[in-house]
Nucleic acid binder design. Sequence first.
DNA 1: CGACAAATTGACATATCTCAAACGACGTGG
DNA 2: CCACGTCGTTTGAGATATGTCAATTTGTCG
Lengths: 235, 235
Amino acid sequence: MGTIATFSAHPQRRIASRSKDPAHGRPAFEELLAAFGPPRVLARGEHLFHSGGRGDAVYLVEQGSIKVYRLSAAGDEQVLDFQLAGDVLGLDALGTVDHGCSAVTLEPTRVRALPLTKLRALCERSPRLHHGILQLASRRIGELQQHMLALGRLNAAERLAGFLLNLATRTQSRELRLSMSRYAVGCYLGLALETVSRLLHDFEAQGLIRVHGRDVALVKPDRLRALAAANAGGA
Amino acid sequence: MGTIATFSAHPQRRIASRSKDPAHGRPAFEELLAAFGPPRVLARGEHLFHSGGRGDAVYLVEQGSIKVYRLSAAGDEQVLDFQLAGDVLGLDALGTVDHGCSAVTLEPTRVRALPLTKLRALCERSPRLHHGILQLASRRIGELQQHMLALGRLNAAERLAGFLLNLATRTQSRELRLSMSRYAVGCYLGLALETVSRLLHDFEAQGLIRVHGRDVALVKPDRLRALAAANAGGA
DNA sequence: CGACAAATTGACATATCTCAAACGACGTGG
DNA sequence: CCACGTCGTTTGAGATATGTCAATTTGTCG
């Protein structure tokens, strides 16, 4: 895992695009992939599941993007993650009966579901697949821990820089088209939407990025990285 | 889950004290428990593992307490969790080769290890045990997500109130003996240690708790709960 | 008892939030 | 095709929660 520190590249969970992982079972992921059901297309704004709802499947995003979030009693939203093509979500409901979060599409999105009943049955038969799921869960833990570091210890600029780099790595592109609003970005980073807006402006003023609405081009990723890494550590 | 919202009670991971969970395999946990090796006693300040180090086991805390943390490049510490008796840690290293965090004891602590090699072997043979681990991982994801909400959206008082309630639930006691410093609490909650100190004072002044050094008694847990829940939502 | 680490308390600095206004894009309906 | 309303974004000014720095007190352990 290379360069990006604060926000892990999440390449791990993006099982569709995994290509090399010498030590641990690649085949596990392939097998897992094959277990998912047929594609289903959701319109923008449709929910995949709701917090409190019974968790009855995990989902693989094939195309589009999904916002996973929780609401506080006061109605504040905390975005837990944005899921892009190749990501798997719903892992938090394996251990408990229901979901602790909600998932909504940010644009027309194609997903494939793997019902928990089927998942459990498959796990009985294939330790390899079972292990694949466990690895996904384990990696998700690592990612969340990394994000906790960001929320707890990084300043606004560091968080945003890390976020942009993370997206760039995951999409393998420096030309980002943000499917989420400034508000959603703020909810993810623990910031006010105005702060996000201002910071994007500042980054542009410094020549680090170019911004046109929701299109963001990373002009100087290295300097962004330096910014993010100023505080967000490696390892 | 019951009353505490922001900081889940983590009762899930405290497998030693699990007593009822109708739907999901209790036996899985019992079996898992039995798989751990012999007890080992660590002195205060000893590390169980280091960030970057190869993850070669998961650990069950039998007695004492452990601080799990990450360092940022700037040297700032983010505490990811405090692990008490009954908790399992090291789950984040199942999916990757090495740990993304470090673990150090806060007091003399007794743990039992389950080497990953053995764990994997056992998983091959016992789907039930395998499933137990998966559930632990899944629940940990839920807990981390809940803490992210706290870090991202709650104010200092709400975080601290939630933290105290969390500890009380996990230890089944309203008389807390904090094994961690104010500094460590601050690192966990994303606050400065002075803020923690001041807040404890304020809570005491309001009659919510009594503080004597590291002994904290929850005098009015309900009011603390109201404080924590003011913003930290259920479900 | 002495020394060192932890905790408290105060004064002050500031990053970020909040409130508010204005602007732009975009889709709908006349 | 244009007017209009809505939603998201930008930008500004001011408020504030929390951090920082520093001095003092308390606690702990050899």
